[in-house]
Design a binder for these strands. Structure first.
Lengths: 234, 234
DNA sequence: CAAATGTCAAGAGCAATGCTCTCGGTTCTT
DNA sequence: AAGAACCGAGAGCATTGCTCTTGACATTTG
C-alpha cells in the first residue's frame, strides 16, 4: 500500500549501507569498538544523521545481532543440507563443525550473540526467532532419527524431573516424538557444543588443547553417542 | 628486606581501597561500565591519581579478573570440602551447584571471566593459575574415584585420537591414572557445565527452561553418568 | 642534619565517544 | 501549490581513558 517513494528507496539503501559499514567494523574491531561516529564517517555522513536511521547504538547492535544469528543459521543449514538425510552421525558432525567453523570465521559476531551480553543491553524480542534456528536444525535431526527407529535411546533420567514438567511439556511440542531423557541430553549436548566452541574461541583451552580441530571432532563424536545418535561403536 | 615504610603501607591500603571500589562498580554495573574516573570519584581521588596505582584500565581489569577466579575457586572449594570424600556423586553435584550459585550471585564477574573477552584485552599470564583452580578440583574428584575403583569407565573413544596424542599426554600428567576417554569426557562435561550456566545467565534459555534450578540438577546428574561417576541407576 | 631523590595528588588538557537540538533545505502528501 | 514530514549538517553537552606538568611531601643518602 505505501507507494515506494524515492525517499523510501534511498532510505532503505542508506540503511543497508550503514549496516554494511557497521558489519565491517564489528568484524574487524569487535562490538565494543563499534562506534556510531566511525560508522558515520565511513558512509560519509555526520554522526547525527545516522540517528535518523538507528535511534541508538543499541538498535544498531540489535540489527547486527539478528544479522549474526541469520548468518550462523544460514551457514549451518547450508552445510547440513548437503548430507544425506539418513546419515545421522554425519549430519550431527556437520552441524557441529559448521557452528565451529562459522565461529572461528566470525569471532566477534559469535561473541556478540553467545558471549556475555553487552552491558546494559537487553535482547529485544526480535532476536529470539533467529536465535533458535540452529537449535531447530538439531532438533529436526533427532526427530528424524527417532522416527526411523535408528536411535540408541538413552536410559531414563537418573533424577526424576517432576518439577520440570511444564518445561518438558513445552519442549515436547518442538521435539515431537522424542523421549524426555533424549530432550534433556540434547540440551546438555548443545550446551557442551557451545561451551567447547567458546572455550576454544575465548582462550580457555590455552595450554590445555592445542590440536583444537581434532579435539573438537573427538568431543563431538562422544556427544553424538551421548544424545543417542548411532555411532561407530554402537 | 625492604622495610615497610609508612609510604608503602598507605600505598597498599589505597590500592586495596581502589580495588574495593572497582569491585563494587563491577558487581553493580558490569565490566564495560567500569570507569577509572568513577572509581576515583568513589575513593575521593582525582582520576589521574589512580594511574599511580594501576597504569591503565586494563591492569585494573586484570586484577579484578584474578579476583573473580579466586572468588569462584574459593566458593567451589569451600562447598566441596564439606562433602565426604567417598561420596563422588555428591561431590560432583556440589561442585556444579557451587559454580552455578556463584555465577548467579556474581553475574558480572562470571561474564568477565567466562564470557566474551573484553575488547582489545589480552589475558595476561597472571590469570592462568587462578583460572585452572576449579578445573583442578574436578580433576581431583575423578582421580579419587578412579583410584577407589568406584568408576564406570566410559567406553573407548569412538574416534581415534591419534592427532591428539600430545594434548592427551600433557593432560595425563594432571589426570594421573585416568583413562583417555575419561579425560575427554571430563572436558566435554566441563564445557557443558560452563555452557549450561552461561545459557541460563546470558538468557539463551529464555522461553526454553523456566525451572532453571531443577533443570540444572537433572542436567548435571546426567553429566555425572557421562563422565563415569557412579550414579543411582548405575 | 640537610640536600638530593623519589613519590604523590591534583589540575589542565587532548582526542574520542553517545546523544540532543536546532537550522535550513528537500521531498512528499493533500 | 501549501503544509507537513523528513533529512543532513553543525554545534554542543557530558562523559570517557590517558598524558603532562606542577607543587607538596616523604624517604634515602651524603
Amino acid at each position: 500500500m505505501p507507494p515506494v517513494t524515492a525517499r523510501a528507496r534511498v532510505r532503505a539503501e542508506l540503511t543497508e549501507e550503514i549496516l554494511d559499514a557497521a558489519r565491517r567494523q564489528l568484524a574487524e574491531h569487535g562490538s565494543a569498538a563499534l562506534s556510531l561516529r566511525a560508522v558515520a564517517r565511513e558512509v560519509g555522513m555526520v554522526s547525527s544523521a545516522v540517528y535518523r536511521y538507528f535511534p541508538s547504538r543499541d538498535e544498531l547492535l540489535t540489527a547486527l545481532i539478528v544479522d549474526a544469528y541469520d548468518s550462523l543459521g544460514d551457514a549451518v543449514e547450508r552445510a547440513e543440507a548437503k548430507v544425506g538425510r539418513a546419515k545421522y552421525l554425519d549430519r550431527w558432525m556437520t552441524i557441529c563443525r559448521a557452528v565451529r567453523t562459522w565461529a572461528l570465521a566470525h569471532p566477534h559476531e559469535y561473541a556478540l550473540i553467545y558471549g556475555s551480553p553487552v552491558p546494559g543491553y537487553r535482547a529485544p524480542v526480535i532476536t529470539i526467532g533467529p536465535a533458535t534456528r540452529v537449535a531447530l536444525i538439531l532438533v529436526q535431526l533427532l526427530i528424524d532419527a527417532q522416527r526411523d527407529g535408528v536411535f540408541a535411546e538413552p536410559p531414563p533420567l537418573t533424577r526424576s524431573p517432576k518439577a520440570l514438567g511444564a518445561d518438558l511439556d513445552r519442549l515436547a511440542d518442538a521435539f515431537a516424538g522424542v523421549s524426555e531423557s533424549t530432550m534433556v541430553h540434547a540440551l546438555v549436548a548443545w550446551a557442551s557444543v557451545y561451551g567447547t566452541v567458546s572455550f576454544e574461541l575465548f582462550g580457555q583451552f590455552h595450554n590445555v588443547i592445542a590440536a583444537n580441530s581434532q579435539y573438537f571432532d573427538v568431543a563431538m563424536s562422544e556427544l553424538a553417542t551421548f544424545v543417542g545418535i548411532p555411532n561407530r561403536r554402537a
